[in-house]
Design a protein around this nucleic acid. Structure first.
Lengths: 209, 209, 209, 209
DNA sequence: CACTAAACGAGACGGTACGTCCCGTCTTGAA
DNA sequence: TTCAAGACGGGACGTACCGTCTCGTTTAGTG
């Protein structure tokens, strides 16, 4: 079979990923993952000595990295902060929504996932903020607005919106652009500095300019 | 023993909770929980016919409700939005940090918790925003600031800060008050409307007034 | 099923015994034995905490005791030493020959069984000799023949013949009687003391009278 | 290492032998034997294509032959039946007692070894009897004693005594000589025919002269 | 002297069985 | 009846070997 020559570790990760997508985290068996990967159970333990736990963690990390890799590819040619935010929101939201494993886990594992926010969120917020900072630095910010506070704010709001868009449809470019302009950047960048030509929103704003 | 006459269901929940705190979610056994509650395993299945899964879910829900009950008690006498936000941030952050089960889960179950954000977050954001709206309605907001957008913004930032405070120490009342004033409300309420007597922050702000 | 109410331990022993008879000691699996006994693998480990090893030992001991119980029933009504030896030789030899497990083991486990003679043989020789002593005591022995030496001698020869009858057919009562008379007892009991009426053998004797 | 140039097969046998001596038959691993022999596991399979089973059998056979070779060297210069029996008993008993593998197996593999008697014993009895016959032929036997019956008797008693000496100490030449004279040969060879000068035993005899 | 062929070390792999742990069901006996 | 106690079938886990196979690397042996 054509898959036979790809590194075993990756095949196992994919097999496990498929099983999680199909049956949820808790019901995924080492045996299942091995069979799905076309590999014996022993081999799974050879590649993941920590057993089931290490395997599951590896799958999560693997998808995590894959997501950010793609996100980076999506964003690293953006030329304005508006573009970064719009594309980022849309891509992240679509990824999240389409992500089969996540969707499966969401209906299968109720109540297991409330925590983890603390540890992980801290890192993610810092990372996103760090990514946004250089973009912000190129803008004329409103008086009294600190670059780092602003990027922290943008990171938090962005992540929150990705997870829970509320009434916004982040996969609609129009709405997303409107959201970025009126809600996220309105209180930060000087009016008209960029994209001033865009039509005014009819919605209210969260923070005043 | 004195606990013997309390309803069995509650004793079981507490036993399970203690076990989760000690060993983590995944390693908690029906047997353990039963023993901890001074109850036979069969009785657990009588009260939680769904078995282990239902038991774990019940424990999570139970703690979830307990948290919000206490949060409500903490907040329902607050007389200003500032007070609501300050007390809420401090209380929630302290609860999160001290919550033994959460802490145990965080070190025990890495990688299980990235998801769940979508479904649950949406509800939580809405709930928090709904709770804040009446408070906001009593304020003179800055021009163009919409009440609902603003409460949505506050809910998102608040939740984000509780999970990942970054450089803020939310258990320090001084810092929290400063955070609320300069970062959360600065762009929303009219300058000097409330708490105008407080000293100016030396930190920058995220969004301009 | 009708077997369901017999004690589990015994059912397992029988299942294991059947498997050993079919496949040999080394190839007998706990799984096999369990299935044969109509019992889950876990139950086998509940009854034999030492696992496979304890199970196999128990089977061997079980059959061992069964054999000696039957042998005792066969012999305890014998009224003369000749009868004891004849019936004992015949019964033991037939048991050994018909014993399906032994036969299976003999062809399946070559070379594993040379030892064990030391430890076990010592006990068996002593036991058999002890069993024969009272019978010998009722006889008029030849001059200089010691009762204990004689019973030791009879025990050794008897066991040896059971295991390796050589040219004797121990399942033929005629031959066996002849063997007992001319080979085993000739040098021990006074001529004509008992069974003197029997015809003389045409075979030689091992030890002179 | 100095052993490196000895044929691999022999090194493996010795390695396996050492492992069996140390851990018993059942717990001896191909891996262990290979490591002990300073050889890779693959090489073991190259020399013993039958795998573990063939290896174990080969070890047993190897030791078996080694024992009989040495026994032959011990006996082939003996000049009398008494000498043959005395030296044989002493040598065999000492070999059996000192044989580390056997001793280890005896404590490690209880219950595996009751059988095997039939097939193997028959051969061994015949072999020993055949070895003894020419010696007996040189003696004046008592009246009515048949040479073949007598050698069969001697073979059986000898083997039995080697395995289970009872109260005799076969490694004591005095006792062994006494045993041979008073118990084994007393009923067979004519009184005084050989070794007539030896002092009379104070023990009884099993079969009368 | 290079070159080939055999033997070897190393190690990945599929597979089987082991012994352990836990789940969920069920029965029994005592309060 | 309700519950404690516990046996049981079932199933997954992680471990340990087995036997097979494929790689490179010696190590001779031969042209």
């Amino acid at each position: 079979m054509g898959q036979a020559d790809r590194p075993a570790r990756e095949r196992i990760l994919e097999g496990a990923y498929a099983c999680v997508a199909r049956r949820g985290l808790a019901k995924t068996t080492v045996e299942d993952a091995a069979r799905q990967a076309g590999v014996s159970r022993a081999t799974v333990y050879r590649h993941f000595p920590g057993g089931r736990e290490e395997l599951i963690d590896a799958v999560v990390l693997w998808q995590f990295l894959r997501f950010f890799t793609r996100l980076y590819e999506e964003l690293h040619h953006a030329r304005s902060l508006h573009q970064v935010l719009e594309r980022g929101l849309t891509f992240a939201r679509r990824s999240l929504r389409q992500h089969e494993v996540l969707q499966r886990v969401l209906v299968t594992e109720p109540g297991v996932l409330l925590p983890k926010l603390t540890t992980e969120m801290e890192r993610v917020v810092a990372m996103v903020a760090g990514f946004l900072t250089p973009y912000l630095a190129r803008y004329a910010l409103r008086d009294g607005v600190d670059v780092h506070e602003a990027s922290d704010y943008l990171a938090r709001m962005t992540l929150s919106l990705i997870c829970a868009p509320g009434s916004w449809d982040l996969e609609d470019p129009e709405q997303t652009a409107e959201l970025v302009r009126s809600q996220l950047l309105a209180g930060i960048v000087r009016a008209g500095a960029v994209d001033g030509s865009r039509p005014r929103s009819t919605r209210g704003t969260a923070v005043a300019r």
